[in-house]
C-alpha cells in the first residue's frame, strides 16, 4: 500500500465524486418539474440504441488485425451469439453459448 489510509480514502472519494457527477448531472439539469427540452427527449429516444452499438464496439476494441489470434476468437464467438439469438430468441442461451465458445477458444485453441 504505497499511500496512507487517509490518502487512499480521499482517492476513493475523488473517484466516486467524479463518477457520480456523470450519473447525477442529467437529472439535475432536467428535473421532472421542468419540461424537458424537445432535443433532449429526442436524444433520450435515440441514445439507447446508439450507446448499445458503442458498447459492443468498445468491448471489441482491443482485438488486433495484425497480431495473432487476429480477433478470430471474438469473430467466431460474436457470430455464435448472433446466430443462436436469431434462431432461438433466448437471450440467456445466446449469451451462455457465446461465452462457452469464447472460453473454449481462448483457453484451448488460441
Amino acid at each position: 500500500m504505497p499511500l496512507t489510509d487517509t490518502q487512499t480514502l480521499i482517492i476513493i472519494l475523488a473517484v466516486a465524486f467524479g463518477t457520480m457527477i456523470t450519473r447525477f448531472l442529467p437529472f439535475l439539469l432536467f428535473p421532472k418539474t421542468k419540461k424537458t427540452p424537445e432535443i433532449i427527449s429526442c436524444l433520450g429516444k435515440t441514445l439507447p440504441a446508439a450507446m448499445m452499438g458503442l458498447l459492443v464496439v468498445y468491448c471489441l476494441k482491443d482485438i488486433s488485425a495484425v497480431n495473432p489470434p487476429y480477433g478470430i476468437p471474438e469473430l467466431i464467438s460474436v457470430s455464435a451469439v448472433v446466430i443462436l439469438h436469431i434462431l432461438k430468441r433466448n437471450a440467456l442461451l445466446s449469451i451462455a453459448g457465446g461465452t462457452a465458445v469464447y472460453m473454449l477458444l481462448v483457453q484451448h485453441v488460441f
Binding site: I11, V15, G18, T22, P26, F27, P48
Partner: peptide, 25 residues
C-alpha cells in the same frame, strides 16, 4: 497522491453515463 487527477480522470472515463442519464430521464 493526486486526488484532483483522480477526480478529472473519473469524470472523463465515465462521461458515457451522461448519455445513460438522458436515456432514462
Amino acid at each position: 497522491f493526486d486526488p484532483v487527477q483522480a477526480f478529472l480522470l473519473s469524470v472523463m472515463v465515465n462521461a458515457r453515463h451522461l448519455f445513460y442519464g438522458v436515456s432514462v430521464l
